Simulated scan of single mutants.
Amino acid sequence: MISDWDDAYANAPHIADADQFPPLWAGRAAEFAAQRRSAGRAEIDLPYGAGPRRRLDLFLPDGAAKGLVVFVHGGYWMRFDKSIWSHLAEGAVRRDWAVAMPSYTLAPAARIRDITLEIAAAIAVAAECVGGPIALAGHSAGGQLVARMACLGGPLPDAARRRCVRVAPISGLFDLRPLMKTRMNGTLGLDEAEAVAESPALARPATDLPVVAFVGSDERPEFLRQSELVANVWTGLGAEAQCEQVSGRHHYDVIAGLSDPASPMTAFIAP
């Protein structure tokens, strides 16, 4: 029984040296982005709409791209931007996929429903830049956002939606109603109607998209529950969905596999 919902969603207090991860990510991201720019295989700050955060970075493989991966970052819809995650494109790029990474307007300047629409627009613009199939991946809040693209009646334009072939939410949030019990909702501003509408686990999934909800085995119980929930519910509704626990990983290092072209996570997203 959960009585402290703030603690249920608090990752940093339960991860050793948690404060070291953001600068580590930023350093690796800057190094990878610089390498791709020097090779002429990166396009930075491509606009996908009006506003300073409606920008995406596109990292291209050395040869022809097999298709497009779109990675959406997390941060509880309130923190971070595309620039500290660039290194997570390396695994897919080395498997000859292009990778787009959008920023988006953060709460409270945008509600979650607005961010959902921004990500749909970002995917559509990235899809105009790279042909072939599209795979979607996202971490934490980004997991919720890419899962929303896999819901029936979701916000993706038809042309981009028809090209989507798989979705990988990583440590995602799929039932947003408990967040109304947290202090962070003072920033998010969720009410019951929006929490229900933006919860993938409460929506009907598209049944033509394989979905793997990855989650670290050492994550907070609520993140394990949420990933198992969406996989179970969507399987019951006819989707090809499963939950895959990544052994020995917590919320901050579960995404490390995206940098490795040989990891099972990367192999699923960019075969």
Rank of each mutant, 00 (worst) to 15 (best):
R148V: 04
S171E: 00
L179A: 01
A206Q: 11
R163S: 04
A137W: 07
A201Q: 07
D4Y: 08
P13W: 07
L258C: 09
D158M: 09
A109P: 03
L46G: 01
G74S: 07
A120W: 05
A147W: 01
R95Y: 03
R148E: 08
A195M: 08
F223M: 09
A12H: 06
S83I: 13
R163T: 05
V99C: 01
A12D: 06
A137Q: 12
I269W: 01
V93E: 02
K181Q: 14
R162V: 14
Y9W: 07
L176K: 02
W97T: 02
E43A: 15
S38V: 15
E192K: 12
N11S: 14
D158A: 12
G248T: 10
P102Y: 01
M78T: 15
I134K: 05
W25I: 05
A239W: 03
A33T: 11
F80T: 13
L60M: 14
W77S: 05
L60K: 13
E43S: 15
L88T: 11
L202Q: 07
P102M: 01
A147L: 00
S83D: 12
A195F: 05
A18I: 12
R148G: 08
G131M: 06
E222N: 09
Q20S: 15
V167R: 00
G172R: 02
I255C: 07
S103M: 07
D81Q: 06
V70H: 02
P205E: 04
L229N: 14
K82Y: 03
S86H: 15
W25V: 06
C164H: 03
L156M: 04
P23V: 13
Q226D: 00
R95C: 02
R113C: 04
L136Y: 04
S227K: 06
H250I: 11
F59L: 14
P22E: 02
V196P: 04
A203P: 04
A256M: 12
A267C: 13
A33N: 07
V99P: 00
P133N: 10
R54D: 00
P13H: 05
R28P: 11
V72L: 01
W5C: 05
A64Q: 15
L136H: 04
A18Q: 05
R161T: 08
G186V: 14
L173G: 01
T207P: 08
T116C: 13
